[in-house]
Computed example of a mutant assay.
Amino acid sequence: MEAGERVLNRWQDWVGTFTGVVALTVVALPVAAVVMWVLAHRRSANGAEQAWRRSVAEVGMVHGTVPGVWMILLPGEEPGVVRGALTLVPLRDLLEMNTGQIVGNLLVFAALGFFVPLRFAALASISRILALAAGFSALLEIAQYLWLDRVSSVDDVLLNAAGAGLAAMASRHWWRARSGTPVLSPAA
């Protein structure tokens, strides 16, 4: 049976391929929704403030970030045989990346960037989100190089952080309003 004809028929296909991780992420959506609902209802019953907001943010950042990190940590085609590559020159690899790689790198920490400032007021700034995403991304790139025989690139770190920053900007209205900081009007 060719690889193209095979459709997630072994457990390795589910946990060890990009397609499998995406499929598991979609399959886990109802579970994430139930977890979010249970958390919110338990918090509401205990009189917690912003129970739904906190629950949505926590489940959203975990369910949205774990699959991307999981894909980053998948080993290369020949782990232990072929040594990973390291690229430290900014923007060199970006020119050779296809659209899927660029979009994928932008999405890895997008959920984290969107939801973390909603959940943790201390992290509610674009610069803090960029630093958090860049730090996590650098750790993952180091792991890729040392143990997974994959290409580790500073461009991946830049794209991962940029995706988190863009997502944080998309949710900025909600976390700025919560912190009491006035939200600038479009005319300002």
Rank of each mutant, 00 (worst) to 15 (best):
V56Y: 09
W52A: 11
V31F: 13
A45V: 02
L112M: 15
V35R: 00
A57G: 05
S171C: 05
L88G: 02
M71N: 01
Q144M: 09
F114C: 07
S125M: 05
G104F: 07
A124E: 07
T17F: 07
V35P: 01
A168Y: 08
A143P: 00
I102A: 04
M61G: 05
A51W: 08
L88F: 02
V31S: 04
A121H: 08
R10G: 09
N9P: 12
S171K: 05
A170K: 08
A48V: 00
S137D: 12
E96A: 14
H173E: 03
W70D: 02
S55L: 04
P186S: 03
V103I: 15
N105P: 06
I126A: 11
A188N: 08
E5K: 14
P90N: 01
G104C: 07
L159G: 03
R10A: 12
L132P: 06
A32M: 06
S55K: 03
A57V: 07
R54I: 02
S179L: 14
N105Y: 07
A164M: 08
E49I: 03
T19L: 13
S127H: 11
S185H: 12
A134M: 09
V7K: 12
W174Q: 09
A187C: 01
G20I: 08
L74P: 00
V151Q: 01
G64E: 12
A188Q: 15
F109E: 04
F136G: 15
P182S: 12
Q144G: 09
S185K: 15
V21K: 01
A121G: 04
H63F: 13
R83K: 13
G113M: 11
S152P: 12
R128M: 07
V157I: 15
L107T: 10
L86A: 00
A33H: 01
A134Y: 12
R92W: 01
G100C: 02
S179E: 12
G20S: 09
R150S: 10
L8Q: 10
E141F: 05
A51K: 09
L166W: 04
A164F: 04
L39T: 06
R150Y: 11
R42Q: 12
E96S: 13
N98A: 03
S171N: 06
L132R: 09
L39G: 13
P30K: 15
P182Y: 01
A131M: 13
G4K: 10
G104R: 04
E49G: 12
A3T: 13
G165Q: 09
L158F: 10
R92Y: 00
E5N: 12
A23W: 11
P67W: 11
T19V: 11
G60C: 08
A45D: 06
G47E: 03
R176T: 12
V62F: 14
G68R: 06
L132Y: 09
S152L: 03
A161W: 02
G76V: 01
A57K: 05
G76S: 04
L95G: 04
G68T: 07
W70A: 05
L86E: 00
F109H: 07
V82D: 01
S44L: 11
G4E: 14
R119V: 06
A3K: 14
V62K: 01
L106A: 08
A187S: 13
R6S: 13
G104S: 06
G100F: 11
L159Y: 03
R178F: 07
S171D: 04
A187L: 11
V38D: 02
